[in-house]
């Protein structure tokens, strides 16, 4: 049985899990909703920026609270898949909000979080940049959703099939 994740690591993991899944659903729902579009976009932006802040905290926390090692018996291919998908998740958790922020900057929109509170642009106003970043946001969001599904499936495999303590190490409340 491996040792569990540190309490702060677990807190960050489950908070972000809820937020990210909510963001994926809010994002995909808003782009085909007329009546709820504005309400959803107004949640999407501050929540996305909150995820950016949290993932930065999480990466720093990882240095201080390294994850427990994977079980000894796990074959190389599975270990590789586990590590690669975790770094992919980190990459996407940074990239999606940054691309969101960047594409709104390039589009010349104000990046309003709440009331008068807004962020500065991180890119110059440019039609061409917006044209490139807007579809990139979609592609990365689908990649994140696919990686999340794989992650969910793998977690359940650990919990129900391998029963090797990996699931417990994160799902300890």
């Amino acid at each position: 049985m491996s040792r569990p994740f540190a309490p702060l690591s677990r807190l960050l993991h489950w908070t972000m899990a809820v937020l990210i899944v909510a963001m994926l659903f809010i994002g995909i729902a808003m782009v085909s909703s007329l009546s709820d579009y504005h309400r959803l976009v107004a949640i999407h932006k501050p929540l996305g920026i909150a995820i950016l802040v949290l993932v930065a905290i999480r990466l720093v926390n990882r240095l201080f609270n390294p994850p427990p090692p994977l079980p000894n018996g796990m074959p190389g291919l599975l270990r590789f898949a586990a590590h690669a998908s975790h770094w992919l998740l980190y990459g996407l958790m940074f990239a999606l909000p940054l691309v969101g922020w960047g594409m709104l900057s390039a589009a010349g929109y104000p990046i309003v979080l709440l009331g008068a509170w807004h962020l500065p642009p991180i890119l110059p106003h440019s039609d061409a940049l917006y044209a490139a970043l807007r579809p990139l946001h979609t592609v990365l969001a689908f990649a994140l959703f696919a990686t999340f599904l794989a992650h969910l499936g793998a977690a359940l495999m650990h919990a129900l099939v391998f029963r090797d303590g990996v699931f417990r190490s994160m799902a300890k409340f």
């Binding site: 808003m30 909703s33 007329l34 009546s35 709820d36 579009y37 504005h38 309400r39 976009v41 589009a107 039609d127 061409a128 917006y130 044209a131 807007r134 579809p135």
Partner: peptide, 17 residues
Amino acid sequence: LSARSAAYAVSFTRRAR
């Protein structure tokens, strides 16, 4: 209002590309 916001975003994104 929300419908305008949604439709303008699609028009804007298409013409940008």
